[in-house]
């Protein structure tokens, strides 16, 4: 792979993206436009996240890539391999070992540490997108902090379903100012955004936007006083490691209605099993 620059992107592009990231960090939750490049993977597979990762990665980084909580699914494997080949970084599946984590749709169960960077892949960055079709108008709404319409959506959910039915991409207010779409993470992960000691970067390749939640930033999930924000609960522990209070995936195991609920975070689950932690609760 000598014919490619370190981490695939040319240095000018990296500099441009780093500038966008710096601006995003300076204005938490604000969507910074950037000149998104064609990447050797298709839109929807994490082109935004890959560009952010390529711009912040260094030879000494230890990289973990997550797809829906798992380290061994197609998207995670190919992106990890991509950076192994183009940046020769050391890969890992362990959340606590990684310095840089690119993720699709989950924040790891293992708490992140100061100094770590989490890069989230974002399909649609604009939280007001399905409420207001005009881009010029949504920018104006952000500029003027006109977020009443987002509450209209929550009102509608409660009216129709008795509760807010949004279970992923649950809208948050960052640092008391910008409304942000936290990428399609389950709302279960929303509390992890709040005051997280790691740097959270969001990259949307097709929509050409980068935004960020700097360490220890207040992130509040929108709710009503009489319908407070709640996360999902499961009435059983993980079938493999016995963890409670974690995000579980439902797996169909046969064609007779048999099903299993297991941790969506494979690294977390595997390490608990190795430690003989079955039956215990979340650390």
């Amino acid at each position: 792979m000598n014919q490619y620059n370190f981490a695939y992107l040319d240095e000018h592009t990296k500099r441009m993206i780093r500038r966008a990231i710096l601006k995003a960090v300076a204005v938490p939750g604000y969507q910074v436009p950037f000149g998104s490049r064609e990447m050797p993977l298709s839109y929807g597979w994490g082109t935004g996240g890959v560009q952010v990762t390529a711009s912040v990665i260094g030879p000494d980084d230890v990289l973990k890539v997550i797809d829906q909580g798992a380290d061994d699914t197609t998207n995670a494997v190919s992106i990890r391999k991509f950076f192994e080949r183009t940046a020769a970084v050391r890969p890992t599946t362990r959340t606590d070992e990684a310095t840089l984590i690119q993720t699709r749709h989950r924040i790891p169960e293992t708490p992140l540490q100061a100094g770590q960077i989490l890069v989230l892949q974002v399909p649609i960055p604009e939280p007001l997108r399905w409420l207001e079709p005009r881009e010029a108008e949504t920018r104006k709404m952000h500029a003027l902090e006109e977020y009443g319409v987002m509450y209209v959506r929550l009102y509608e959910d409660i009216t129709r379903h008795g509760k807010v039915a949004q279970t992923y991409e649950y809208p948050v207010l960052v640092n008391g100012r910008y409304l942000m779409r936290p990428s399609p993470i389950p709302k279960f992960d929303n509390p992890k955004l709040d005051g997280n000691p790691a740097l959270l970067l969001f990259g949307a390749g097709r929509e050409k936007r980068i935004y960020a939640v700097p360490p220890h930033t207040r992130v509040r999930s929108l709710d009503f006083d009489d319908h407070p924000f709640e996360v999902e609960h499961w009435d059983r522990p993980c079938a493999l490691c016995g963890a409670r209070g974690v995000f579980l995936d439902e797996i169909i195991v046969d064609d007779k209605g048999g099903r299993l609920f297991v941790c969506s975070d494979t690294d977390f689950c595997a390490r608990r099993q190795a430690d003989g932690g079955a039956g215990g609760d979340r650390p």
């Binding site: 006109e146 009443g148 319409v149 509450y151 209209v152 009102y155 409660i158 709710d223 009503f224 006083d225 009489d226 319908h227």
Partner: peptide
């Protein structure tokens, strides 16, 4: 809601 009402 635009004026800040937050009680459903």
């Amino acid at each position: 809601m635009a004026l800040g009402a937050r009680h459903y």
